[in-house]
Every structure is written in structure tokens, then in C-alpha cells.
């Protein structure tokens, strides 16, 4: 090691460790370089989910399927995570779905005169809807339905509606009474819930524009909410 200008108990060469080696010491007589090498395992046995032998040409890796989709994996792939509590690998949280509904069918003991003013609330119904997913927002589909049975004498009329919307009007201009004609109105709308959120949804059952002795004999009301947690805009 003449080029290392060794003398005085030390050398000026730099020794760096390569693969599977370590270098200690300073190259002096009292503290010589010591190069240690560790041979890689000759045969690595892998369990489920791993592949490779651990060599430079066949490193240990997660055994995965090829991305089968035409969309971009970077933009669209979900994650694999390490659970710091258990040390296990975890995927994205599961998706959730739920249904909540309430419906009532009331036979009135005494027919109810239809109010003369428009859009009068005669009944309500409520449900508590929960997004069961603690991680994602929930997309909900709300179905609202009202079915009023009207008895319409000649020259009478009545309307039915939901939540401020005058949805239909029946008029009888004939010479005979119309017995128990049904309004049966419905609406389908979307809503969203934050993770784990519970919301009370109330529907108003409305009628009005009553004339000529029009009455209501039955009130049917229904609220149904379907909630799915998912990724959505």
C-alpha cells in the first residue's frame, strides 16, 4: 500500500464497504482496517404473499397480480398499509350500505275535510339516517311517498303534495261522487352524510285547495333512505 503513503502508524487510503460487507478501523497499525463480509442466505423460504430469493437478481418482493384495468394505477390504485398495532398489512376500509325506512297507513275514523287553503301540512313522518362508514362519506337516496284517499262529490276538488310541492289536483265535474281516488305522489332525491353522521329527515304531508265537500279517508306516508359509502365527487 505504497500509494497510500503509509507511515507513522497510519495510511491515507479510504476503504468503503461494498455489498454484504462492513469496514472498521482507520488503517493504522494500532487500528487496522477490518473488512467483514456476510454471505446472503443461500435459500430464502417465502410465505404467502411474498416472492423472490433475496438475491440481487431476485429480491424479495410482494407477490401481486398485474394491474388489470385500463385506468392509471397511480391515480386510481388504492393503498396497502401497515397496522402499527398488530403489524399486519391492511387494505382500504370496507364499503358500507344501509337502509332505513318508516311507513304508516292510517285509516281515518272520521273523513277529514280538505282545507281550502293550498299546501296545508296535515301530517309528518321522520327517520334517523346514519352513514355506518366511519371513514368515508355516504351517498344517500331518499324516497318520499304520500298517498291520500280522496272522496270527491260532484263539483269538488282537492290537491296533494309533499314538502311544499303542490304535486297534483283532482277535480270532479261529473254528476257522481268519486270514491277514494288516490293521489300517490313520490319523490326521489340524493343526499350525503359525513362519516358516521346521523341525520333526521322529516317529510310533510300536504293537502289543500279543498272545495265542494272533498274529504280524505286514508293517509299513507313513507320515507325510505338507502345509504352507500363510497368514493364520489
Amino acid at each position: 500500500m505504497a500509494s497510500c503513503k503509509c507511515g507513522g502508524g497510519q495510511c491515507n487510503c479510504v476503504v468503503t464497504a461494498g455489498a454484504n460487507t462492513t469496514v472498521t478501523g482507520a488503517g493504522s497499525t494500532s487500528n487496522p482496517y477490518v473488512v467483514s463480509a456476510t454471505a446472503p442466505p443461500a435459500n430464502v423460504v417465502t410465505g404467502c404473499g411474498l416472492t423472490g430469493s433475496g438475491s440481487a437478481t431476485s429480491p424479495l418482493a410482494a407477490k401481486v397480480a398485474a394491474w388489470p384495468f385500463t385506468c392509471d394505477i397511480t391515480d386510481n390504485g388504492s393503498g396497502i398499509y401497515c397496522d402499527p398495532t398488530t403489524g399486519e398489512l391492511r387494505a382500504d376500509p370496507a364499503y358500507w350500505a344501509d337502509f332505513q325506512g318508516d311507513q304508516a297507513n292510517t285509516a281515518l275514523a272520521t273523513p277529514m275535510p280538505v282545507p281550502t287553503a293550498a299546501q296545508q301540512t296535515i301530517d309528518t313522518i321522520s327517520i334517523d339516517v346514519t352513514n355506518p362508514d366511519p371513514c368515508r362519506r355516504g351517498l344517500g337516496l331518499l324516497f318520499r311517498e304520500v298517498d291520500l284517499d280522496f272522496v270527491l262529490p260532484p263539483n269538488s276538488g282537492a290537491m296533494a303534495g309533499i314538502d311544499g310541492d303542490d304535486m297534483n289536483y283532482f277535480g270532479n265535474q261529473g254528476s257522481g261522487t268519486i270514491i277514494n281516488t288516490h293521489s300517490q305522489d313520490n319523490k326521489i332525491t340524493a343526499f350525503t352524510l359525513n362519516p358516521g353522521e346521523t341525520r333526521t329527515i322529516t317529510m310533510s304531508i300536504e293537502t289543500g285547495r279543498g272545495s265542494g265537500g272533498a274529504t280524505i279517508t286514508r293517509i299513507q306516508k313513507s320515507l325510505r333512505a338507502y345509504v352507500w359509502s363510497n368514493r364520489f365527487n
Binding site: 325506512g101 304508516a104 292510517t106 272520521t110
Partner: peptide, 11 residues
């Protein structure tokens, strides 16, 4: 008033 109701609920 004597009116009767059948109610079905998930609550």
C-alpha cells in the same frame, strides 16, 4: 279520535 295506523319501521 278512533283512527288506526299500521306502521312498519326500521328504527
Amino acid at each position: 279520535d278512533g283512527s288506526v295506523t299500521e306502521r312498519v319501521t326500521t328504527a
